[in-house]
Design a protein around this nucleic acid. Structure first.
Lengths: 342, 342
DNA sequence: CGGCTTCATGACAGCGATTTCATTTTGCGC
DNA sequence: GCGCAAAATGAAATCGCTGTCATGAAGCCG
C-alpha cells in the first residue's frame, strides 16, 4: 500500500527523472545548465518533461538554492505616468526572461522603502531595481553588502551600489529654464507637486539658470502637498497668478501640471504663448497634440526601464552588462506654448 | 567541529524555537494561529522573534504548505490609466495584508493570459484577481477546479468562477448614448482604440440606443489597431470628419480619445459643444478641468480594485466576503462638452 | 597504451518551513 | 479530588529541488 501522499499530484523532478531514466539532479542540470548534459540525455529529459507537463516548483528551487527568481522593482509610485513608462520598459524586457518582477511602491517614503526592501530581502531576490540615489542610511546599509545585482534608475549620481541608469534632473531643468529665458520670458515661475528628491534637483537647476540671468524670485516657486495631477496644475496656475499677476511663464515639474496650467489659461482667456509661456517636463505624448502644443523636456523613461532590466539580465546571466553608469540625457522639445512672437 | 553550514546565516524557525525554549512547530503556530498557543508561550516566542530579528522564509513556507503568499493579478495592460486606478485600489488594500501581489499583463491576448496563468499556477497562488469574463475555454478549464479564491473584475457576467465585481459596460455606454441623443445630437459617432471584449460591449450598448432612435450608422464607428492614447483620439476625430463632415458628436471609448478629440476640435476651430459634442468614458480627473470641461461616464475603477482585494482577503481569512457578485454601477457626469445651446 | 585531465552523471544531505499524528497539560463538572 | 474532553505542545516525516562531493567514462598526449 502506497505511503500516504502529501504531494500535490503535480509531476516533480523525480517523476521526470524516472520517465527519462536518469537521476533527478541530471534533470535539474538539463534545465539550468544544459551545456553540462550530453545531447542524448538532454533529449530524453526534454521529451520526458513534455510528456509529463512538468514545471519546476519555484518555491523548492528558492529554498534549495537560497535564491529566488524574483527581481524586485521599487518605485515611488505605480500610478504616476512617469514611472509607468519606466515600468513598461522594465516589463518589456523582463518578459523575455525566466524571472518574475515583484513590484513595490514606496509612496515617496524612505521608511516605506526600507520596509519594502526588508520584505524583499527575505525572499532572497535575484536582483533589485530601485529609484533614485537618496536611500536612507539604513537602506543603504542593507544594500551595500548585497550579493545580487542592483540597478538604480531615473537619476544618476556619484556612488552607485552597483549599476545606474538615468539622467541629470538638474541639467534637464536647466535646459528648460534656458529655453524660457531665451524665448523672452522674464518672470518665470516653477510649479511642483509633492516635493521629492528629483523635483528638488530640478528646482535647483531652474534656480541656477534664473539666478545667472538675475531673474530668480523664490516667490514664484510653488510646491504642493498633493500628488501631481492635471487639476492640481490648473489650481496652481490660478494661485500663481493671484500671487503675481505679472508672471509670464511657468516651468512645470511635470506634464500633468503643464496640462492643467494650459487649461486654466484657456479658461481665463490668457494668450499662450504670447502673454504666458508654459513648459512641461517628461514629454508624454499628449503634449504634442494640445492646442497650442506644449513645450516639454523629453525624458527617456521607457529606455531607462529597458536598459535597467537589460543590464540586470546580463549580470544575472554572467555576461558583461556594458557600462554600469549610464546618463541617457534628455531633449528639449520646443513647441507652440513657448513660441512667443518676437 | 561544526558540520559545514549550507544555511544563510539568517535566523530560522529553529533558532527562534531554541531561544524561546519551545519546539519549532510551536513557533510556527504562534505566528500563524496564535489562538492555538498559550499566552505565556506566545510571549516568549514573540520576544525571541524580536531578539533574533526573525522573518519567515516564504519559499520554505510555500514548499511545505503547498500554498504561497502570492495573489496573482492579471490585467490586460499595466499602462492604461483605467487599470492603474484599479491597481491602485488593489494595492491600497493589499498593503495591509501578509500577501504579495504578483502582476501579470496579458496585452489583451487570451494566449498570453493562459501563459501567465500557467506560470502563476506553478507558484500555487493564494488567490487570483483577473479581468473580465471572456477567458478562453482552456483558461476557464484551469480555473474551474481552482482551490483558491478568484475575483473577476471590471465586468460582471452570469457565471463567475467564484467572485466578481464590476459594472455593465453595455449599460454604461447606453447611458452616455442616451445623454447625447437627449442633448440634441443626431449624427453621433463612436471612437474606439484597440478592440477588446469590453469596448465591444460598449459599442453594443451604444448601438442599441442609437438604433432605438433610428440614428445608428455603422459608418460612424471607428476602431483602431493601436492602443488608446490622446494623439490617437485627435487622429481619429480628423478621420471621422473626413468620412462624415456632418457628424455632430462622438462617444469615445475612453477619456484619452475624448481629450484628443477635444484638442483636434480646438485646433480646427470647431465649436464644442455647439457644433460638436464630445463624451468620454471613465471620467479621469482631467475631464473636469479642460476647456470646455468634458462630459464622461464615471466608472468605479479604484473601488473595483478595493472591493476585489477586500473580498479576496476575507475569503483567505475564512471570513464571509459578503455578496460575491457586485455591480458597482456608473454615473454620467454631464459637463460643458455636451451642453449644447437649445 | 598508461596516466591524467575533462566531461557526464549520480548519491546524499540538506534548505526552512508545515503536516500529521501523538503526547502531555490544563480545565471543569460533580 | 477524579475522570475526561479540550487545549497546548512536540516528534518525525516530508515538500521539491539544488549544493557538494564522488565516481565512472571519455578524450588526449607522448
Amino acid at each position: 500500500m502506497a505511503r500516504k501522499r502529501r504531494g500535490s499530484g503535480k509531476p516533480t523532478i523525480m517523476d521526470v527523472a524516472r520517465e527519462a531514466g536518469v537521476s533527478a539532479i541530471t534533470v535539474s542540470r538539463a534545465l539550468r545548465t544544459p551545456k553540462q548534459v550530453s545531447d542524448k540525455t538532454r533529449t530524453k529529459v526534454d521529451s520526458a518533461i513534455r510528456a509529463l507537463g512538468y514545471t519546476p516548483d519555484p518555491a523548492a528551487k528558492a529554498l534549495a538554492s537560497h535564491r529566488s527568481d524574483i527581481i524586485g522593482v521599487i518605485l515611488p509610485s505605480v500610478t504616476n505616468s512617469v514611472f509607468q513608462d519606466t515600468l513598461r520598459g522594465i516589463y518589456e524586457v523582463a518578459e523575455t526572461a525566466p524571472y518574475r518582477v515583484q513590484l513595490g511602491n514606496t509612496q515617496y517614503s524612505a521608511a516605506e522603502e526600507e520596509r519594502l526592501l526588508r520584505g524583499l530581502l527575505s525572499q532572497r531576490p535575484a536582483g533589485l531595481i530601485l529609484t533614485g540615489v537618496d536611500q536612507s542610511a539604513s537602506t543603504a546599509g542593507l544594500l551595500r553588502g548585497a550579493d545580487f545585482p542592483i540597478v538604480q534608475i531615473t537619476e544618476i549620481g556619484p556612488a552607485p551600489f552597483d549599476m545606474m541608469v538615468g539622467f541629470s534632473h538638474s541639467q534637464a531643468a536647466q535646459l528648460a529654464a534656458e529655453h524660457l529665458v531665451a524665448a523672452g520670458y522674464r518672470r518665470i515661475a516653477f510649479l511642483g507637486a509633492r516635493r521629492d528628491a528629483r523635483s528638488t534637483r530640478r528646482l535647483s537647476g531652474f534656480r541656477a539658470v534664473l539666478e545667472a540671468h538675475g531673474l530668480y524670485d523664490p516667490g514664484r516657486v510653488l510646491f504642493s502637498e498633493q500628488p501631481s495631477s492635471v487639476p492640481l496644475g490648473a489650481a496652481q496656475l490660478g494661485e500663481l497668478l493671484d500671487m503675481d499677476p505679472k508672471a509670464d511663464a511657468v516651468l512645470c515639474n511635470n506634464d500633468d501640471l503643464a496640462l492643467g496650467a494650459l487649461f486654466e489659461c484657456q479658461r481665463s482667456g490668457i494668450d499662450v504663448p504670447n502673454a504666458f509661456g508654459i513648459c512641461g517636463f517628461n514629454d508624454i505624448d499628449t503634449m504634442a497634440v494640445t492646442h497650442p502644443a506644449l513645450t516639454s523636456v523629453r525624458t527617456p523613461r521607457r529606455e531607462i526601464g529597458r536598459q535597467a532590466m537589460t543590464m540586470m539580465l546580463a549580470r544575472l546571466a554572467g555576461e558583461d552588462p556594458g557600462p554600469t553608469t549610464r546618463n541617457l540625457g534628455v531633449d528639449l522639445m520646443p513647441r507652440a506654448s513657448t513660441a512667443r512672437a518676437a
